[in-house]
Amino acid sequence: MDAPASRPTCRVGLFVTCLVDFFRPTVGFAAVKLLEAAGCTVIVPPQTCCGQPAYNSGDRAAARRVARGVLDAFADVDYVVAPSGSCAGMLREHYPELFADEPEVALAAQRLAKRSWELVSFLVDVRGMTRVDARFAGTVTYHDSCSGLRELGVKEQPRTLLAGVQGLSLAELPGAEICCGFGGTFCVKYPAISDRMVTDKAEDVRATGAGTLLAGDMGCLLNIAGKLSRLGAPVAVRHVAEVLADMADGPPIGAPGRG
């Protein structure tokens, strides 16, 4: 991969995200590989979750308890990078607001916010990565996760890097900017509405004819993969980092495991 040799190395704290940690560790290793290719030293501090479930449920006190752990754990890295627009958006856009009325923590939250990035936009926008050393035979389509797209402006960066993957062709997804219906606890609080949204999404994905759906957030991916398999649609689902890191040889999300 073309790590820009002129850039100074930097210490990146990988914010794994609770969903990657639990469901799809491969994505974490893919992120490490990409970050190292971009000339970064990766460390993984003890961590759990960004606190978004509590924050979006209106429980600020619980969200602050969880978020303080993140502030402490990532206090001494140059950047915090997450393979998720949703969690990166929480750190970057919402932590400062969460601690706005706690002056002694607010400064730390603002500092962390400025250093926090979604993985693919970090590679492209901060590290100047323009291509990756990866192969993927087939047509993929791409869903723009809401938080990454609208809170962080992640849109062109994944397409830029995917364009350099040998053998890969991208079929754009109609309605790629429409929510898949995951929405954290929304999907279990209002399952009928969520079902309608993810069914529409799955049908749009199927209509592209692509063999693989990619996105940058595990929440959306679990939701869409779950619906595609419920519908019996033969579409593989993967996190975009797996393809960019040339680590897409294992079973896709929701497919039978090896061995």
Binding site: F23, P25, Q47, C187, N223, A225, K227, R230, G254
Partner: peptide
């Protein structure tokens, strides 16, 4: 199977879609 069609306490999820199974060990 790589996924769950139903799971105790997860009805809100699995009533309308499958739950992809975790790979196994956690990343950490």
């Amino acid at each position: 199977r790589g996924r769950f069609g139903s799971l105790p306490l997860a009805g809100g999820w699995t009533d309308v879609r499958d739950l992809p199974a975790p790979e196994g060990g956690t990343f950490r």
